[in-house]
Structures are given as C-alpha cells and as structure tokens.
Design a protein around this nucleic acid. Structure first.
Lengths: 225, 225
DNA sequence: CCAAAAGTGTTCCGTCTACACCCATGG
DNA sequence: CCATGGGTGTAGACGGAACACTTTTGG
C-alpha cells in the first residue's frame, strides 16, 4: 500500500446505532448494558467498529444486522462524535446512525439473547459516554424528517390502521393531533392506500387497513404531515 | 496507554471545510487546487487531518483558522464521509463542516497566498474524491437552516442594508422574493435593529443600515423567513 | 432632470384549526 | 344493550402571496 500520509496519527472508528421502534403507542429505542471495558455494565447504544473493507454505511448496516438479523433497514447518519476523551480507553471516533424498524420484525428471543431492551425515548437512562447526546441528535433529526418524508411506515407493519399511524405520529412529535384533520391530510396522499382488509384486533367494529404504496409515491413524492 | 481495542484497525481522519461567503450578490465557496498527492492539482475543498489531541470540531476550527486567520466562526458539521475508496491513497475518513464567513474579513492577499478562490455555488467544478457530494449536503443543510435560524448575519458585515439581506437570502435559496413581503417579515423581528447610519455606496438616496442584536434575539429566539 | 435604488399597505385566497356526532360490533 | 374505538364535514381564523407607486439624490 502507498503511504502518502504516514506522518499522521490514526484513530479507531466505530458506529453506534439508535434503533427506533414503535411499540404500545410509544416511541422506543433499543439499548443494553455495555459488555466490554471500559464502561462495562453501563447503559449503552449498540455499536461496533468499522472494518477496513467497509464504508461507514456498511458498518452501520452490518452492526444493525448483527443485533437484529434485519437487512435493508431505513438508516440515516446522525453525525460524527469525536471529543478527545469521549472514550475512556483510547481515542475512538464514532459515527452515529439511526434506524427505523418494525418491532414485529425483531423476535423477543433474539433480542433477549443480545440483552437489549426497548426503552421509551423519554425514559432513557444516563448512558455511556456521549450516547445520550447521540440519541438527542437522532431524535431531533428524525422528528424533523417525519414531517416531510414518508418514513413513518418504516416503524409500522406493512398493513396498518389510520389510528396506528396517528398514534405513531403523536408519539414521535410528542403531542396529540386532531383526528379529523389528520385523516383529512392522509386522504390527500394517494400513496397511502386503503385495502379491503379489516383489523379487528383493536376494536369491535374493525378498522380499515392501509398500506404505503412506494411506486405511487415515487411518481409524485410529496409528503406533509 | 491502555489498549482495550487493539485488535481493530485504525483509520486516518480528516476534516474538510465548505466555506461559504456572500460576494457580489452571489453565494460562493472557497476552493483551491489540491497541493498534495494523490490528486494533486484537482479542485478541492480545504481540509486537514485531525490531530490526536483535538476534537473534530477543534480540528475543523483550526483548519479554517489556518486558511483564513479567522476564529469564532459559525461552523456546523455536515457529516462523516467514509467510502472505502474515497481516498486513492489509503483509507481516510473525512468529516465535512460548513462555515459561514463575511468575505470582507478575509483579505485577498492571504487568500491568494493559499491559492484558494471564491466560486459561485452553481458553478462549482468537478472536485477531488467526494468533495462535490460534501458541498451538496452542506448546501442542503444550510438552505434549510437559514429559513429558521438567524445565520444570514454570519455572511454579512456587522452593518448591512435590508436590500443586502434580501439579496443574500435570494442567493441562498435560489429564487427571488417580494421586497414588501420580505421587509414586512423583517420588521417583526425586533432583534434586526435599524441604526441611524446610512449607506450611500449603493444608491444615491442612501439606505438605512441594520444590525443583528444577539442579546435581544436570545431573549425570544424566534426566526422565520 | 432623470436614472436608480429605497421605502411603504392592502386585498385576496388558500390553508390550518377548532369542533361533535353517528356507526358497527363483541361481549 | 352498551362500551369501545372507527369514521366523517364545516365554518371561521390566520398567514402567505400578489401587487404599484412615491421618495431621494448624485451626476
């Protein structure tokens, strides 16, 4: 290998994942107890080191896959965190990513094997190093994004009711919204398709199930909640 | 030094600066010809390596200072760029930052010594590696931010006319706006203070000079253009 | 005296918000 | 039969967009 820059010092690079899920009408993230020193036992995001043969995005996707077994998940970079002393061991710069998953896709069995838990975003404990800051930044970005991009659907099953969608939206932005106004806006988005199917698990009357039609969305990608 | 993570490979870390300026009613950035291999001679952002004793933010500020001699400049992280092959030499991950400076603060003499030029954002040539992508991301972030945060003033002299402010805003968002509507909105922001001073350099009649009063803004930080 | 930029209000229209009642069904 | 969640429309308020003329003065 050519070494043009040999006089400069290298650093360890890691990725940390803020994995969002929507469960029980609450927005939650996956956190666990850190398994290695330094900081063993502290609450922590799930992360890993970047390998020399993968990009940052690939490292984040691989890390998420190792934890959840899921691929092709919606992930976005939050940013790089690089205080000199952010890791008590040695210099480690970390790039945070947030991911949106449907909690149904992540079996409890596998979750428990990795010792991670779903925790409501407004009940997050103090975590290792700068992980709380990472979560705050991720939340801020995601809350912005959900208003103008159709990412809600990443947190829901393929078929969902409008009530579910509304509760999700309320959980993310942290305030209640008017049901009629909400549904009026949904009705204008042709890519949120009503199906013939009825969900009867949450009410006696039953609620229509909807799906997000990406093809229709891509023809005219406008979204505004 | 303790070495908890010794089995993992380290990478070189750099920062690259997208330095915005407002000149001649155009939004521009500072770019130059890359001075070292690989890629010597290609158009490039100004950057540098992160030292072991400084955070990413510090590295970005130092890099900007080396180029411009300016401190306490408004800078924000754009994100980390880490394709495996983004640098043809060896693995280098770079964190991009954008900065907003007042072009008057950067003497042409110093600029020429560093061999960098102001180039309009819609006339940017193909640059080294992923630098065009960095600029695009920075532009997108900055265009969003300028609508809701009082950052325009970072690109202007301490005293400015409303016409200047409007032209700046138009240059950033890339479209013209109505003068009366614009000034109506400005009038509602008490922290954009009219001074007694008159600028006569751009018109015979003369235009009132305004200043941004940060103290007043901080009391009620609301901004909307 | 005129060219060139500064400065100033009103009307209209579309969008957002507030708000209350009937429906279907399982238990 | 009633409790529970699903589903629907309208009116009024508000904010954003369109729009044209007068003022000042250096050259």
């Amino acid at each position: 290998m050519t070494t043009y820059y040999k006089e400069f010092q290298k650093v360890l690079l890691s990725v940390d994942c803020i994995i969002f899920g929507f469960d029980n009408n609450k927005l939650k993230i996956l956190i666990g107890r850190r398994q290695l020193d330094p900081g063993r036992g502290e609450w922590s995001l799930y992360g890993g080191f970047v390998r020399s043969d993968e990009s940052l995005d690939e490292a984040a996707n691989r890390t998420l896959f190792e934890l959840t077994g899921l691929k092709k998940v919606y992930m976005r970079q939050v940013g790089a965190f690089g205080s000199v002393d952010r890791d008590p061991g040695e210099r480690v710069v970390s790039v945070a990513y947030y991911a949106l998953i449907n909690v149904d896709d992540y079996a409890d069995k596998q979750r428990l094997e990795h010792g991670v838990e779903w925790v409501e975003v407004d009940k997050i404990p103090t975590m290792y190093s700068d992980h709380n800051e990472m979560v705050n930044r991720a939340l801020k970005l995601m809350r912005e994004k959900i208003k103008t991009r159709p990412i809600s659907f990443q947190l829901l099953p393929p078929l969902f009711t409008l009530t579910q969608l509304q509760h999700l939206y309320e959980a993310v932005i942290g305030e209640e919204v008017d049901k009629r106004n909400f549904r009026k806006r949904i009705k204008e988005m042709d890519y949120i398709e009503k199906t013939e199917l009825i969900d009867k698990t949450h009410s006696k009357r039953g609620a229509a199930l909807y799906r997000f039609n990406k093809k229709i969305f891509d023809e005219d990608p406008n979204f505004k909640l």
